[in-house]
Amino acid sequence: MTNTSTVLEVKDVHKTYKPAGSVVGAKAAHVRAVQGVSLTVHRGQTVGIVGESGCGKSTLANAILMLEPPDTGEIVFDGTDMTRLRGGALRRIRRRIQCVFQDPYTALNARMTIGQIIGEPLRVHGLAKGRRAIKAQVGTALSHVGLNPRDARRYPHELSGGQRQRAGIARALVVDPQLVVLDEPTSALDVSVQAQILNLLLDLQAESERSFVFISHDLAVVSQMAHVAVVMYAGRIVESGPVEEVFSRPRHPYTDVLLDATPGAGRSPRATAAAGETRAALDVGQGCPFVARCPIAQDTCAQVAPELRSVDATGVEVACHFPRSA
């Protein structure tokens, strides 16, 4: 944490979904997608959020973007609690928080040209007046992400997957946001193309003080991109801290399991007894959500949910009664 100025503070966010089509009288449990998540993003920093499907990372992204506002909790961006904003005020603040989506094809309007797509945020926020000015800024944005300004005239389906994602990044960056939320930005791309996009993102961050929230299921990608790693499980943060600490010396057994399972993580692969599937946090009762899969669980774990707490001076926080010491 080189810079201490805070850009985003997520405070104790909860988000519950009612199961679709629940009937009165049916005992359909509410899905607690995110349960009391807090995190801080500093200027120029990338916070990587990693976890398996159903862990709540995408719900958290939607909450930060205020696309699916949280039920309770605060999302403080640059001193303003966005959960209190409505209408125009919320739209204005969106200029400073942009987003890059997973599938660059479905996230771009296929009936608009790349130029119209990238120009849209400029129009929406009145940041450039007139066709000429917009065209010039779109051209700059395209070159910035390694596309040709002439690509502005093309349609999304005429671009390759990698080019489309570059266009998606250009759309996010054209309004010069302070924070960009990247929701699995490379998981729809081939390995060789993924590397190009990750490098581009690293370069774009190096030249500015922009902050990223980088969401991925892939530990290797997060390891390459993030300053801070946040590991989520069943709607909660189980471990967070400097990426080198979390991935080299995991304190939480779940982080350990994830690393074991990741091919090419330099560990000999083994399917542990702890492996198994994340049940969307349906009913974990009062105990630790990981208890059923945990290789080191003890009686306490089934009864008391561990709090996220600092265990040493490295800045790592872990939600486990029996964290491994570093």
């Binding site: 390995v191 193309v193 993924q194 390891s223 390459q224 990741t262």
Partner: peptide, 18 residues
């Protein structure tokens, strides 16, 4: 090009083109 756990905050080699 494949990202690896343990390569922290580093560029990898991106194959140009598609």
């Amino acid at each position: 090009a494949a990202p690896k756990v343990g390569q922290f905050r580093t560029r990898t080699f991106g194959i140009p083109g598609s």
